[in-house]
Measured scan of single mutants.
Amino acid sequence: QLRFETNGEEQAKKVLEEAKKHNLEAHVTIENGKWVVHVK
């Protein structure tokens, strides 16, 4: 499982879109005010 700390909602959405293009499972959590994308 990969973990990407992003700078906010915009970047998190871009990472999610990329993951979906590659048929990867991804979800976002907010940790300590940071948007974190988890990709399987």
Rank of each mutant, 00 (worst) to 15 (best):
H27P: 00
N7Y: 12
E5R: 05
V37R: 00
Q1M: 15
L24A: 05
V37I: 08
K14L: 13
A26E: 01
H38M: 12
R3F: 05
N7P: 08
N7V: 10
I30M: 11
N7H: 10
V15Y: 14
E17H: 08
L16F: 08
V36T: 04
N7R: 10
L16K: 02
K14V: 11
H22Y: 14
H38D: 03
A19E: 01
K40Q: 14
K21W: 08
K34F: 09
K34P: 00
L16E: 04
V39I: 15
K13A: 11
R3D: 04
K21H: 08
G33Y: 02
V37E: 01
G8T: 15
V28Y: 07
A12H: 01
W35R: 00
V39T: 03
K40V: 14
E18D: 10
R3G: 03
H38W: 15
K14H: 10
T6F: 15
Q1K: 10
E9Q: 09
E17N: 11
E25W: 10
V36S: 02
L2A: 06
L24I: 07
E25L: 12
L16T: 04
N23S: 08
T29I: 10
E18V: 13
V37Y: 01
T29M: 08
E31L: 06
T6I: 09
V36E: 01
H38S: 08
K14F: 11
V28F: 06
G8R: 09
L24V: 06
H27F: 15
L16G: 01
E9I: 12
K13D: 05
E5V: 14
W35V: 03
V39R: 00
V37Q: 00
V28A: 06
L24Q: 05
L16M: 13
A12D: 00
E18R: 12
E18Y: 15
K40R: 12
W35S: 00
I30N: 08
V36K: 00
I30W: 12
A19K: 03
F4R: 02
R3W: 07
E10K: 08
Q11D: 14
E5H: 06
V36N: 00
G8V: 11
K20P: 01
K14I: 13
L24F: 10
V15Q: 05
Q11S: 10
E5G: 03
T29K: 06
I30P: 01
T29A: 08
H38N: 09
A26P: 02
I30R: 09
K21V: 07
Q11G: 10
L16W: 08
N7M: 12
V37A: 02
Q1C: 15
K21G: 05
A19Y: 11
R3M: 06
H22F: 12
F4A: 03
I30S: 04
G8E: 13
E17L: 12
A12Y: 05
I30A: 04
T29W: 06
H38Q: 05
W35L: 03
H27Y: 15
H38K: 06
Q1S: 14
V37D: 01
R3L: 06
N32E: 07
E18K: 11
K20N: 08
K14Q: 13
K20E: 08
E9G: 04
W35F: 07
E31M: 07
F4N: 02
L2F: 13
E9L: 11
L2I: 13
N7F: 12
H22A: 11
F4T: 03
